[in-house]
Design a protein around this nucleic acid. Sequence first.
RNA 1: CGCGGAAUAGAGCAGUCUGGUAGCUCGUCGGGCUCAUAACCCGAAGGUCAUUGGUUCAAAUCCUUUUUCCGCAA
Length: 309
Amino acid sequence: MKIVFMGTPDFAVPCLDICYENHEVIGVFTQPDRPKGRGKKLAAPPVKEKALKYGLDIYQPEKLKTPEMVTLLKELAPDCIVVVAYGQLLSKEILDIPERGCVNVHASLLPKYRGASPINWCIVQGEKETGITTMYMDVGLDTGDMIHKDVVSIGDDMSFEELYMALLPMGAQVLAKTLDAIENGSAPRIAQNDEESSYAPLLNKQNTMIDWHKSAGQIHNHIRGLNPIPVALTTYEGDRIKIFVSELTDMKTEQTPGTIINVSKSGLDVATGDGVLRLKEVQFPNGKRLAVSQLILGHNIEIGIVLGQ
RNA sequence: CGCGGAAUAGAGCAGUCUGGUAGCUCGUCGGGCUCAUAACCCGAAGGUCAUUGGUUCAAAUCCUUUUUCCGCAA
């Protein structure tokens, strides 16, 4: 099939590989280069880097919903448009262009966790399993009819990073299966049950701060679901510190939530709204990400200090 | 040149403001204690104080060049 591929971050790259290997990619759409990092350096999205290696035609429109882009896509005349974490919505006009429809790869078991950060939210909410869903796109946000679904289980201490690495190749596998089915006309159309849907909003600075009044289990999920991006935050004596890894304990306490009740090589034991959570890996300002056993060699962490104040 | 911070032993840090003997906690090595140990005791090795130039009798410390790293903001 002739495919137009739309995608931007790392997660979309293996999907581009699959399209390139099994089909004819006649155009790649990705977000424009943006100033990134500390200086102001212009950085190309990962999908663009890979498309350049393949020598594919690259388009980076600021806005996709323009008459020029619609005309361009009509001229390209793809059989199918594949969208993976592109970052822009497609209008009805564009959705109607490819004869075999527009396919989206989404990193959750739809209709749950529609939206921008499904992988993070699955862990934060303590889900036991998640997966990849492919669907025919419609004008809604991740609301189209589903095609294929693959499931992966989530371990109790699995971090976002680990789950992400598991889903990365899976996305490409499911996409490959889906494209084959579309090509030979055997792709199902399974409507989503909106009653069961939930939404995974983009994570921002507001919801990365740890609320120590929650239970140890909830905070543990929060920390591992945000590790390493965008990472759970709290404060220590006014300094913002990042928390990467935590561990559940059997301990109980009546201390104010956030209070450091013990410091050892094993970690920082912190009181929560329900139970005690042991912090294993943290990062202080100007410092590197450190295991607590390393941290306490040079930092004097005082018992009794209350985090998050 | 978006804003700010940092670079000191293998690791994590103090010392810099106020220039004057290179320090702490770990780790490593040797020895001791112990039924034994990641525990405890004694001892040792290990630094061109990131880099360039300057000021000074004297620079980790003050001024300056470059590089790298971190946080914020995007």
